[in-house]
Design a protein around this nucleic acid. Structure first.
Length: 526
DNA sequence: CTAGGGTTAG
């Protein structure tokens, strides 16, 4: 009889599609006196949280239960731990559980609680609890500890300590350690852990490739992708997203297109992450038509999809298109709301299109209509906008009215505007601020020296150069590259190592009308 | 029933 009911309930849950259905089932169980039977409450709660992703009703089920057991606690804590916004609630409930005598935590609950830890102190205390409850010998629990430490600030070393003391390590433990190092920018350590792995699967490769691309090691990321394929691992959607990001940042259009083909053949086109990464790659490689096409066929345009498309147009100075996309986003984006990234793109578009008034309006709109607190990046855009338009009074008004310290971007944008419009007095002020913020950045020192030169202050020019030499701070040379026929050509400013230097300068001269200090070097073959 | 990988931003 009981078995029959159980089957019925599970069957009904499988067919359940919305909250009303769930409530009906709940009512039915209540009439049978089973509303608080642990097994059913657990099933309902899990279904509600995981399938319907209705957290508020899930917590209702939990809090209405007179005596929740370990399973119920696990279910609700899992649900809370799944989203960063509800991490605090997960921990509050977990502490509550530790205080109340039964139910006791089991080994299944610790990994979830560990996921919700905001700092290493919290992870420490969970560590102690795990030891006390005798669950430390589980590999899964230890791996969760490694992962937890590696996510909180300053915790990688603790993660490594736990990792080193593990008696048994599997792919997951290694991968957790790899991404832990990658997260703090220590690509080297990530690589050495990766090299020690006895076996690797697709997520482990992804962890390292993501680590590279997130830390600016794009070429290294691409090399790893090749090695991954060479060693017979099939890249999945995650791999592809990382690789596309690398292609975009380095202008590897050929490889990007090859990956697009791979995406198409393997059905990843329906992955919104992949679609967004494709849009970004095509945009950065200058193929706006393709970018737009990929964007258009994405059936689930999310916030990032819209932002990426806007950024593409902004990057290429197509302010009209960027604005049109923004308006479409507001009109038919569904529940998508513009965020701070959207406005950075939009403001950049206005800057590159010279639309000062429009840019101003969007800035106001961001604050008033969308309630977004302007971040330093937005001020950077605004100063860039005003500076390029030569509206220095307003620019300074904004700088002085900011409720935060102006950063390099702000002063750099102002300096740039000053140079364009010949405002050497203000340029000196901005350049001095730059040097003040980062005295060891040779680039800023050189800019200040140049401004002194413009002003005819030769004594200061000499002093500046002497300081630069004394502290041995040199500017990293400006560099850009272009792909032609499977070859990447790298351009360094002031570099004359390329055999065709003279020819190249002649072409540049005919293009810009004067000689520019930019050079070209053959870099590598794909 | 538990552990690892993801795009956009001057």
């Amino acid at each position: 009889m009981e078995g029959k009911l159980k089957e019925n309930v599970l069957e009904t849950l499988r067919k359940c599609s919305d909250l009303n259905h769930l409530k009906q089932l709940q009512g039915y169980l209540t009439t049978l006196g089973h509303a608080h039977t642990h097994f059913y409450a657990f099933k309902l709660l899990r279904f509600c949280a995981l399938t319907l992703s209705n957290l508020s009703y899930a917590r209702l089920i939990f809090h209405h239960h007179p005596s929740p057991n370990t399973h119920l606690f696990t279910a609700i804590i899992t649900a809370y731990a799944a989203h960063p916004a509800t991490h605090p609630s997960a921990l509050i409930l977990f502490r509550h559980m530790l205080r109340s005598q039964p139910p006791r935590p089991d080994n299944f609950i610790f990994p979830h609680a560990l996921k919700a830890c905001p700092d290493s102190r919290t992870t420490d205390s969970l560590f102690a609890q795990i030891v006390k409850s005798g669950f430390l010998h589980y590999t899964v629990v230890q791996t969760a500890l490694v992962d937890s430490y590696s996510r909180v600030s300053g915790g990688v070393q603790d993660a490594k300590k736990v990792f080193d003391e593990m008696s048994e390590r599997n792919v997951v433990s290694f991968t957790a350690m790899v991404s832990g190092f990658a997260r703090v920018g220590d690509v080297e350590s990530a690589v050495s852990v990766f090299d020690e792995m006895p076996e690797r699967d697709v997520p482990s490769w992804n962890a390292l490739i993501a680590g590279c691309t997130q830390n600016g090691a794009f070429t290294q990321g691409i090399e790893l992708l090749r090695r991954m394929v060479w060693e017979c691992n099939r890249p999945n959607g995650v791999t592809v997203v990382c690789a596309l990001s690398a292609c975009g940042h380095t202008g590897m259009n050929q490889l990007g297109r090859w990956i697009h083909g791979y995406v198409y053949k393997n059905g990843f086109v329906f992955d919104s992450f992949v679609s967004n990464a494709l849009v970004d790659m095509y945009g950065k490689c200058g193929n706006l038509g393709k970018a737009r096409k990929v964007f258009e066929i994405n059936p689930e345009k999310g916030l990032t999809s819209w932002n990426s498309m806007i950024n593409c147009f902004a990057l290429h100075g197509q302010s009209d298109c960027a604005i049109a996309i923004f308006e479409e986003m507001v009109r038919c984006g569904g529940c998508v709301r513009p965020d701070e990234v959207t406005f950075i793109g939009l403001l950049n578009a206005c800057t590159h299109g010279g639309l000062v008034e429009q840019g101003y309006r969007y800035f106001e709109m961001m604050v008033r209509e969308y309630g977004i607190e302007p971040r330093i990046e937005h001020y950077g855009c605004l100063i860039d906008l005003l500076g390029r338009a030569g509206r220095f009074d307003e620019a300074m008004e904004v700088v002085n009215g900011m409720n935060m310290e102006p950063d390099e971007v702000v002063w750099g944008s102002l300096l740039n505007g000053c140079k364009v419009h010949g405002r050497t007095d203000l340029a000196e002020f901005a350049a001095k601020k730059l040097v003040e913020i980062d005295p060891h950045n040779g680039g800023y020192g050189i800019m200040l020296a140049n401004v002194y030169g413009d002003l005819g202050k030769w004594e200061e020019v000499r002093n500046m150069w002497r300081t630069l030499k004394e502290q041995k701070s040199y500017k990293v040379p400006g560099c850009s590259w272009i792909e032609v026929d499977d070859q990447v050509h790298q351009f360094y400013s002031l570099d004359k190592s390329n055999p065709k230097t003279e020819e190249l300068y002649c072409v540049l001269e005919s293009l810009v009308g004067f000689r520019n200090e930019v050079m070209v070097e053959l870099y590598f073959y794909i």
